[in-house]
Every structure is written in C-alpha cells, then in structure tokens.
Design a protein around this nucleic acid. Structure first.
Lengths: 236, 236
DNA sequence: GACAAACGCGAATAAACAGTCGCATTCTTT
DNA sequence: AAAGAATGCGACTGTTTATTCGCGTTTGTC
C-alpha cells in the first residue's frame, strides 16, 4: 500500500479520484517542487518568511519538525498561504536544506581541479585545504544544522539526503584517486564514506559546543583524516 | 505547556483529573518503567513477544517506530494487552535499547581495571583491546541498530540516550587518564567524545554493509583512534 | 477605475494514532 | 470446583495534524 508523504484527506465521489491521482504524482517526482513561482513581489517575501519561520521553529524545538500551523503563524500567515508555495510540509524543510546539501559537491569538486600532489608534504597541504573548505560549510551554515538533523530523521526526506550523500562519497573517492590514480575504486569509496561520516559526526557535535572546542575537534578530525588516508597513497 | 510523552485523551469530569495527575507522574519519573511485573508464566512470554514484534517491525520500517496496533497484532495480541506491561509506546523501544545502552559502560570500565600501559607498544595493544571489545558490542547487537537509531530520532527518548552517552564519554575519558594521569580532564572529555562519535558513526554504516567491508572500516577506525589519542600520551 | 489574476484566509475534512475501560477468559489457589 | 486474581480483549475516545477549497482582498495592467 501507498504510504506517501502526507495524510491527504480522502474526499468522497469524484474528488476522491483527484486526490488519489495527485498523491501518485507526488510520489513519483514533483512532490517536493515548489507549487508555484511567486509572481508578485509581496509573495516572494512571503516565501522567505515561511522559510525563516520554519528555520527558527526547528531550532527552537530541537530536531522536531514544526507543524504547518506553527510555521504559518510564526510567519504571520494562514496555513492556506503556506500551501500556495509549498506542496507539503517536507518541501519546506528540504528547501532549507538544499543549499547546504548542494554546496558540498561544489566545494569538493573544486579541490579535484588542482594539480595532484607529488609528495607527502604537498598531500598534507591538500588534505588541509579540503578539510578547511568543508569545515567552512559547517561554520557558515551552523544555524541550519537542526534542519539537517530533522531531514535525516524524517523517513520521507531521508532518501533524498542519501542521494546527496552518495554524491559526496563519490567525490571524496574521486579526490583520493586524483591524488593516487592507482587506488582501487572500491577502497576509495570506502575511505570517502568514512571521511564523510567522521567529518559529519564530529562537526555536528562540535557546533553544539563553544567555538574553541569546535576548533580543537577540527584538529582532531584533521589528524584522523590524515591517518586514515595516508597509508593508501604511495607517496615518498 | 506540558507536551509529554503521549497524547493521553483528556476525559471529562473527575476522570479528567485522574488523567492529568497520571500524566504528571509519568513526566517526572515512572513514565518508562514497566507498568507491572508479570506474575503468571504466560504473561512473561507475552512481554517477550511484544519486544520481538517491536524489534522486527522497527527493522522492517527503517527507523520509524511502529504503531501500538502494529506491535500488538504482530505479537498476536490486542493493544490493551500491550498496555498491561508497558506504560506507553516509547517504553517498549527503550526496553529494547537498554541492554545495549548499558553494556557499553561495563565493557569500557573493564578496560580501566588493568595496569596502565608504560610504553607505546603496550598502549597500542590497549587501544586495540578497547577497540575490539566495543566493536563486539555492535556486532553482537547488529539487529538492534535500527532501534538505536529510532531511539536517537525520538524526541522523548533522546534525553535518556544522552545520559548514557555522557556516561560513555566519561568512561572513555577515564580510560585515557588511566593511561596518562597528567592528561587534562577537559581534553580527555573531548577526546572521549570524538572517540565515541567516530566509533558510533562508522560502525553504524559499517553494519549496513557486508561483513568484509565492516572489518575494513573497523581497521580504519582503529587507525583513526590511534592517531587521535597517541599525541596526548607522553610515552616514549 | 475596472477587470482578471494572484494572493491570502481559516473553517472544515479526514486520516492516523495513543491510550482507556469495562467486560470476557484463563489461571491459581484452596 | 469455586472464588478471586491476573490476563486478554478491542471498540471507543480524544487529540493532533496535514491538506483542501471556496470566498474575500489586493495587486498589476490596460
């Protein structure tokens, strides 16, 4: 049975048919796309208000996703207005997370474009660069972290995150093979996975503490990354 | 306003009073304790059936907690019977997670009882032991992992997990200071935190893959732990 | 300033669930 | 075997919440 994104009330008669059809549409693809583009200036601000409200509420409530009513009220709107621009609740969360999620691949890809390192010292420098670049993504988006956690905790959004994760792992792997083309694809993927997991886990807890502790944890992560990855590179 | 564990229906009249009082009781402490001890043998088996059903369903549905009805049906019972032994749904999950959660401290504590290492080689061996011991907890309880994830994803159960986490961190820290008494408490705590997070994150993803990959990831984690911790020990 | 499109509203709908309670059945004990 | 305790049942209650839809209001355009 279909257990889709939302509890769409099933209407009676021909309307029932419409509702079911709509659900299927959503399931396949369009579900999380913005329902419409804002046409008047007033409304484009409304979208921002909704997004802001959702962000603030998610932060306030830990990782629990706020209700549509709460979001609407916080944004000074009615529920109906929210649904003018978002097809369902999860789309709001996803929209918030999307910029963060997508900035990751960009940053890693950039690190692959440079000339590959030729010795240990150069490699160490490259690790450090990849490292500080990815760290900046977390620091710049610190306020978004509760949303990211909410997304991974949401059964419907999880698959989408997994897609991004897969991409990120592939890019870490590509970065490793850029440094050492002889590295097996499978090994590179595994190391990429571990790099991602370790970085993510440590930075998430790091951001919940003070800045000084965050920086110390960052040093820890760098040491771990280096230890993880160096054995797999045949550099002198 | 109180937004406790469950949506207890508010009854009218004097019953309303009772319901509210019960809620408060739960909030304070007893909420997650078993409602009653089974007195007849038939019922102690029932508790197992409930636990089994909850485990299977949690595994089937990813990390989403199953409904009380689903648990009851799967256990071949009615909802009412479930509530004979568990005060609410989360208590079932918690009961499942508890053995795992509590076996962690035991295992780490055991590693502190031995004589502290005096040189790098001994220390490496101690790391490896702590490491394989904790790894075994994950391997032995692989089927429980979805439950553990569900617990961390549940707003009401999270605080309880956090308590266990705090204890685990403190124990890792104690282990480090056992190896190097000169280590600052604060530093030890941070390193403990990182050890725990890295171990947990990597092992969770490791268990989702094949056994061979799990073992390789384990080697990665060991290398990272060593790299993380060695600089803080003044051994020759 | 009039018309249509866009926007905004919020009561109403319906689905999903947690937890209860009075009655039925089974066990234990004497 | 009869009483009473424990257990089992499941229809029902109450709550929360996502989403809709028809109608009123604002805005942009000619």
């Amino acid at each position: 049975m279909y257990s889709g994104l939302h509890r769409a009330p099933r209407l009676s008669g021909e309307r029932g048919q419409r509702a079911v059809k709509r659900s299927l549409d959503r399931k396949t693809k369009i579900a999380l796309e913005p329902r419409k583009q804002p046409r008047q200036q007033r409304s484009s601000k409304v979208v921002d208000r909704i997004l802001d409200a959702a962000l603030i509420l998610t932060r306030e409530q830990g990782t629990k996703t706020p209700t549509t009513l709460a979001i609407a009220q916080r944004a000074g709107l009615s529920v109906g207005s929210v649904y003018q621009y978002f097809p369902n609740k999860e789309a709001i969360l996803l929209e918030l997370g999307r910029r963060w999620l997508s900035s990751f691949p960009e940053v890693i890809a950039k690190r692959i474009k440079v000339a590959p390192p030729t010795n240990r010292e150069e490699f160490r420098r490259e690790v450090r660069k990849l490292f500080t670049d990815t760290s900046r993504i977390y620091l710049d988006n610190a306020t978004l972290m509760p949303v990211i956690e909410a997304i991974s905790g949401n059964a419907d959004l999880r698959p989408i995150q997994d897609e991004y994760d897969k991409e990120i792992i592939a890019l870490y792997a590509a970065w490793l093979r850029h440094a050492n083309p002889a590295l097996e694809e499978k090994t590179a993927k595994r190391l990429g996975l571990v790099m991602m997991e370790v970085g993510h886990a440590c930075r998430l807890v790091g951001l919940k503490r003070d800045r000084k502790t965050y920086d110390l944890i960052e040093d820890d992560v760098e040491a771990m990354w280096l230890a993880l990855v160096t054995p797999y590179l045949n550099l002198d």
